[in-house]
Amino acid sequence: MKKTKLILLAGLAMAVSMTGCQKKEVKPGDVAGYDEGEQYLSIWVHSIEDTPEGQVYRESVDSFNEKYNGKYFADIEFIPRNDSGGGYSDKVNSSVLSGGLPDVLTLDGPNVAAYAENGIIQPLADLTEEERGEYLESILEQGTYDDKLYALGVMESSVGLYYNKDILEEAGIEVPDADHPWTRTEFMDILAKLKPIMDEKKGYPIDMTFPVGEASIYYYAPFIWANGGNLVSDDGMTVDGYFNSEKNVEVMNYFHQIVENKYMSEAPVEKLFESGR
């Protein structure tokens, strides 16, 4: 297995240098814009080109090629994920086994450690303090494995609740600021106060679902962490005593109470929030 040269692409917000097996040979003239004497760099991204996110990737690559014209040529390929999260990941995983990985690719944050541990990706070049200052600490932490930085995320994401201003105003509920959030007890009391109003609207006080797959952890792990619980041990090797801890049972019972009191629908309802219900 031959390791490709480590290169951090300027202008690409998420860049991961790859180890390459049976690397695809590309000659000048095979790809529009790739000229003799330039070092060819292949890039895979997980989005569709004809989207705002895809256009950001395209513009980043075009900017890179313009800046390093005559020295490097970056060739981007768009391989979208499907609804279940596969597609792109499936191609990456199959290419790990068969060869043909690109020089640079985007990947989901939770996969960084596994890819690094198995030698699929290489560490990025060291960043200066000024460069590190451009990124949130959570982005740097997510892309770091075994004290080495392997990836830089294009974005950070979070989980929050939207609320209908008119309905909360009708119920006389004042939304707190970030420094004085509702407690779990206060939030449950608010749902109880909203229920008779939402019964009249043939709706529910809150619109939540418990999807199958990784989305459930993405949506609801913050509730577990906020209660002092965790999903696994710090070393990631033990579940018993963590996932089924008393603290986590408290959180699950809290959600069970919301469903039991009919503050939310047991089954997803299409456009429940958007329709004012």
Rank of each mutant, 00 (worst) to 15 (best):
residue 242 Y to C: 10
residue 237 M to E: 09
residue 38 E to P: 08
residue 274 E to S: 04
residue 217 I to N: 10
residue 117 E to A: 14
residue 126 D to Q: 06
residue 100 G to I: 00
residue 259 V to L: 15
residue 206 I to V: 08
residue 229 G to A: 14
residue 58 R to P: 06
residue 91 K to N: 12
residue 167 I to Y: 06
residue 37 G to E: 08
residue 184 R to M: 14
residue 226 A to N: 09
residue 48 I to L: 09
residue 124 L to E: 11
residue 6 L to N: 15
residue 25 E to V: 11
residue 19 T to A: 14
residue 208 M to Q: 00
residue 190 I to H: 03
residue 259 V to E: 09
residue 146 D to Q: 12
residue 212 V to E: 07
residue 165 K to A: 13
residue 97 L to W: 07
residue 157 S to R: 02
residue 98 S to I: 10
residue 274 E to C: 03
residue 185 T to S: 15
residue 210 F to S: 01
residue 202 K to P: 05
residue 30 D to M: 03
residue 269 V to S: 11
residue 119 G to V: 11
residue 7 I to V: 14
residue 48 I to P: 01
residue 215 A to H: 12
residue 193 K to L: 07
residue 32 A to N: 03
residue 53 E to S: 03
residue 191 L to H: 05
residue 251 V to G: 02
residue 82 N to D: 13
residue 55 Q to W: 04
residue 55 Q to T: 05
residue 90 D to Y: 00
residue 268 P to E: 01
residue 126 D to M: 06
residue 212 V to Y: 12
residue 126 D to Y: 01
residue 166 D to P: 07
residue 165 K to L: 05
residue 11 G to T: 03
residue 89 S to R: 13
residue 73 F to D: 02
residue 16 V to P: 01
residue 225 W to K: 09
residue 242 Y to L: 15
residue 203 G to M: 06
residue 263 Y to I: 06
residue 216 S to V: 14
residue 23 K to D: 14
